[in-house]
């Protein structure tokens, strides 16, 4: 049996004391799958995603990544996990508008152990080409449209070929065509044997394309 890529095990989380956002949530992320997390606003979908991405520590329970419990790992160890195995795709792209498109893509591996290598630069160019952004490579990210920005963010997330790609409302601000490009890229990424994608979405059409959907209920 193939071990899961990540799992949440009976996880509680509260941003403030006695204001529980997640209560006993468990989730297994299997390899080669795309998991959609849906639920009403404020139900803790993004929080679950950030727990999987080692951006938050659970109040209780365990978060396991690649077989290792990262709930109590040091900040440096969690940062290493994010820089190597985890990729993020945010709703608003979260690009650095002072940088060029190409530099923004390279940001994906800036903090990785090997840093920006020649191979990584070649991969970044290939990705930009693949998503029809080659002509914009040297342009400042501040001049991009929402759709272009999200595709650049997708290139950035895919550059390090993360084991676990976490997308938070990746199509929330996109037109249908760009949304379809982004979702197809995520689905393609998850088809590799050792990869998985988790998408937080409100969009039922996006959820329908995923291998499984996990619904989170808001706490009373």
């Amino acid at each position: 049996m193939t071990p899961p890529i990540a799992l949440l095990e009976n996880v509680d989380f509260a941003y403030r004391r006695e204001q529980l956002v997640l209560d006993g949530v468990s989730l297994v992320v299997e390899p080669s799958t795309v998991t959609a997390i849906t639920g009403p606003s404020g139900s803790g979908k993004s929080t679950a995603l950030y727990l999987l991405g080692a951006l938050l520590r659970p109040t209780a329970g365990r978060v396991v990544l690649g077989g290792q419990d990262i709930s109590k790992a040091s900040d440096a160890a969690r940062a290493r996990a994010r820089s190597g195995d985890i990729g993020f795709l945010f709703q608003d792209g979260l690009l650095d508008t002072s940088m060029s498109v190409f530099e923004n893509v390279l940001e994906g591996i800036r903090f990785a152990p090997d840093g920006v290598t020649r191979t990584a630069r070649a991969d970044a160019r290939r990705l930009l080409d693949e998503f029809g952004l080659s002509s914009l490579a040297s342009r400042r990210a501040s001049g991009l449209s929402g759709g272009q920005g999200q595709r650049v963010a997708l290139c950035r997330a895919l550059l390090k070929a993360p084991t676990l790609l976490l997308a938070d409302e990746p199509t929330g601000n996109l037109d249908d065509h760009t949304a379809s490009v982004v979702i197809n890229a995520l689905l393609t990424h998850a088809r590799h044997a050792d990869k998985a994608v988790v998408i937080v979405t409100h969009d039922e059409r996006v959820a329908a394309k995923c291998d499984r959907t996990v619904r989170i209920r808001a706490l009373e």
């Binding site: 991405g53 994010r82 820089s83 985890i86 800036r110 903090f111």
Partner: peptide, 16 residues
Amino acid sequence: RRDVARRRALGAARST
């Protein structure tokens, strides 16, 4: 703050 948050998400440790 947003810059820092982005970098942290991309793998920067607090010390970095």
